[in-house]
Amino acid sequence: MNFTLDNIDGRLVGTARLEGRLDAQNSKPFQKTFLEWLEKTPLLVFDCTLLDFIDTSGLGAIVGCLRKALENKGDLKLAGLNDKVGMVFEITKAKRLFSIFASQADAASSFASELNPGTT
């Protein structure tokens, strides 16, 4: 998994590219890695373009990540869900918890547009 930090209009947005499978096998270490990312910025995007498969543990892990991001006054947005992964989100109602974007760029720039012009 690769993690990059971008400065978008003065806000530090972290993007993690999830790859392959996210399931009971790797969801625990994944959540640990997530804490490292969260130390760098609470504004995060999971780029799921290369994510092939997700099960309930994986879904639980991502929801856990969202909760931690929200606790840190940030947000976690998802991008590039393929049909299959998208269907898992849909049937489990998890879709409602997230802002989901077609591409990573859309997701990242949405953080910038959320800025209230008056506060910066």
């Binding site: 399931d23 498969f53 099960d55 309930t56 049909d83 299959k84 269907m87 898992v88 849909e90 049937i91 489990t92 109602k93």
Partner: peptide
């Protein structure tokens, strides 16, 4: 706690009739 809307579920396979996408759930909880 699942929401199956506009889908075809067959055994562990979930299909989207609009896009034709089809996924085999490996997770018995789904």
């Amino acid at each position: 706690h699942l929401e199956i809307i506009g889908r075809i579920a067959s055994g562990n396979r979930l299909n989207d009739p609009k896009s034709g996408a089809s996924i085999a759930m490996e997770d018995p909880h789904l």
